[in-house]
């Protein structure tokens, strides 16, 4: 059996969990094993139908009220007890903050290794897998030899695909023994962001500015362009380190990973750290004075020129058109 950890909001599975489930189903199919899921909170009981479309035969539902708020150690302790009860070959979690954290706790509690951010897995007695290093700019080929095997699925690397045949899903309560101490870490409260507009990670168009922008005030031009295109503004680590933009705007390995239809990279050299953050962009248009800059090799389209001349001209043209 392959067990997949599913995060959900009010009984509706998260996209990242459907990605992980798609990897988990590949493993289940390759080993002719059952695909099962584990989910937490009282609303998890509503997951059955949708997870059935993904081929999940059984949802182990830990419907403890105390788990309606996220508590990483309690999740992990539950999974650890479920491993004892069901003996799966592998556990697959999404490559999210929660997925990594919970599975790492499981690894620690059960003394098992864990392979984070997997891209591809060949099943066998030993799993031959590939996983992301350097935020995805390098791939590590590795052998994972343990029982069970703990894996997280790299975010945005698997397209959620429903199963060919919908499974008849059984929602089965699982009631682990959870001491109060398992809840010493839990979400105390959630503060909603008062920011309006599209978030960087979800924007369909992103206009990014790097060191070539030259200072904080010149981001106005980029803001105007982003507004015309219905998008939002991002920045390189160099620009954030200069203090020109807040870290929330940073695109890259240690910032936000974007996946827009179009990324317009203005005055950005194209360091590895930055490029792994915009790998998910369908199209990259670079505007840069240096035709030899790394970004010019990595972009789909380029304008060789000074962003301070090109962007205002483009803004004028878009203004006329609109």
């Amino acid at each position: 059996m392959i067990l997949s950890l599913v995060e959900h909001a009010g009984g509706s599975p998260e996209e990242s969990s459907l990605e992980a489930l798609t990897l988990a189903r590949e493993l289940a199919t390759a080993t002719d094993a059952a695909l099962e899921a584990v989910a937490f909170g009282t609303e998890a009981t509503a997951l059955g139908e949708e997870l059935g479309e993904y081929g999940v035969e059984t949802v182990h539902c830990v419907a403890d009220e105390r788990l309606d708020t996220y508590a990483p150690e309690a999740w992990a302790e539950s999974v650890a007890q479920l491993l004892d009860a069901t003996d799966p070959e592998a556990v697959v979690a999404p490559g999210t903050d929660r997925g990594q954290e919970v599975l790492a706790h499981v690894g620690a509690k059960c003394d098992l290794p864990m392979a984070a951010n997997c891209l591809d897995v060949e099943v066998g007695e030993v799993y031959e897998l590939s996983r992301q290093r350097w935020g995805g700019s390098l791939v590590e080929h590795a052998r994972l030899d343990s029982n069970p095997k703990l894996l997280t699925a790299a975010a945005h690397e698997f397209s959620p695909e429903t199963a060919i045949a919908t499974a008849e899903t059984t929602v089965q309560p699982f009631e682990p023994t959870l001491d109060e101490s398992a809840f010493r870490v839990s979400v105390d409260r959630v503060e909603e962001s008062d920011e309006t507009g599209v978030s960087l990670g979800e924007a369909r168009v992103v206009v990014g500015g790097g060191r070539g922008v030259g200072g904080p005030e010149d981001y106005d031009k980029l803001e105007t362009l982003a507004d015309s295109l219905g998008g939002t503004v991002g920045a390189s680590r160099a620009a954030v380190n200069e203090g020109w933009r807040p870290h929330d705007d940073q695109i890259g390995q240690t910032g936000t990973k974007i996946s827009p239809d179009l990324y317009v990279a203005c005055g950005i050299s194209g360091a590895v750290q930055h490029m792994v953050g915009c790998k998910g962009a369908d199209n990259v248009l670079a505007i840069n004075t240096d035709p030899e800059a790394a970004i010019m090799q990595k972009a789909d389209y380029a304008v060789v020129g000074d962003l301070h001349e090109v962007v205002p001209e483009l803004n004028d043209a878009l203004g006329d058109g609109g």
Binding site: L138, H141, V284, V304
Partner: peptide, 22 residues
């Protein structure tokens, strides 16, 4: 049990130079 590195790989880059629009 263990996870053992076999080798590293630099993924095929899609480098082929951008289409220069002007």
């Amino acid at each position: 049990g263990a996870i053992e590195k076999v080798r590293l790989e630099a993924p095929e880059s899609t480098e082929g130079a951008a289409e220069v629009l002007g």
